[in-house]
Simulated assay, not measured.
Amino acid sequence: MRSVVLAVMPALLAGCSTASPAPPPPPSPSYSPVPVDRVRGCADNAGMNLPGGVTAGPVRFAALDIRFGEPMADYPVSATGWTSLKIALFVQAGTRVTVSIAAEQRAEARLLYLPGEDSTTTFESCPGSAETAFPGGIAVKGPMCLPVDVAWAGQTARVTLGLLRGGC
């Protein structure tokens, strides 16, 4: 048996050495992040209730750290020039809505309801509760009257939020 293994071994090694080399691995593709699901649903419900705010269709915006329409010159600004505002979004029960920063303001404002920054986010409310609360906010490049579009069930509404300024 030992002589058979020894006799076969040179043939195996010869076969390995005469085989063509394996092709080089393909170049690694450039980094491209995996898209994140841009929908917030019932599992994201913050379970909070804040009175007041600004309403557009089935959506209510409630500011936590500012008052809509009141100027605030001393509000903190990041090193990149953006100011993040805490604004909870409430959606009526049984509703799926898409909230978008108006196209003309997308360079100056971002939604902060999902990781990263977006100009558009979709929200699905919880069934059986009056409203579903989504924590988050809006980042702005300075005081502005920000037009925000809300779309749901074939309908649309636009609301203007006075962010760090009055007179909107």
Rank of each mutant, 00 (worst) to 15 (best):
S3C: 08
L6Y: 15
L6M: 15
A7F: 06
V8L: 13
A11K: 00
A14Y: 07
A14V: 02
C16R: 14
S17T: 13
S20G: 05
P21G: 08
P21I: 06
A22W: 14
P23W: 00
P23S: 06
P29H: 11
P29R: 12
S30H: 05
S30F: 10
S30V: 08
V34M: 04
V34K: 05
V36C: 01
V36N: 03
D37M: 03
D37A: 06
R38H: 13
V39P: 04
V39T: 12
C42L: 14
C42I: 10
M48H: 10
P51W: 06
T55I: 02
G57W: 15
P58C: 09
V59Y: 11
F61E: 01
A62R: 06
D65K: 07
D65L: 09
D65Y: 13
I66L: 14
F68N: 11
F68P: 09
F68C: 05
G69E: 13
E70W: 09
D74H: 03
D74W: 03
V77W: 00
V77R: 14
S78Q: 15
S78L: 06
G81K: 04
G81M: 10
W82F: 13
W82N: 06
S84D: 15
S84A: 15
S84Y: 12
I87V: 09
I87R: 03
I87S: 01
A88S: 04
F90E: 00
F90Q: 00
F90R: 00
V91H: 12
Q92I: 11
R96K: 11
R96M: 12
T98Y: 05
T98C: 00
T98N: 04
V99L: 08
V99H: 02
I101A: 09
I101Q: 10
I101E: 06
E104F: 02
R106D: 01
E108M: 13
E108S: 11
A109G: 10
R110E: 04
L111S: 07
L112D: 13
G116N: 11
D118P: 01
T121F: 02
T121A: 08
T121H: 00
T122F: 01
F123Q: 00
E124M: 07
C126I: 05
C126N: 05
S129W: 10
A130D: 04
E131F: 15
E131W: 15
A133D: 02
F134C: 01
P135H: 14
G136K: 04
G137L: 11
V140K: 03
V140P: 02
K141A: 11
M144C: 04
M144N: 04
C145F: 08
P147H: 12
V148L: 08
A153T: 12
G154E: 02
T156V: 05
A157P: 00
V159P: 00
L161R: 04
L164T: 03
L164W: 08
L164C: 10
G167F: 08
C168W: 08
C168Y: 11
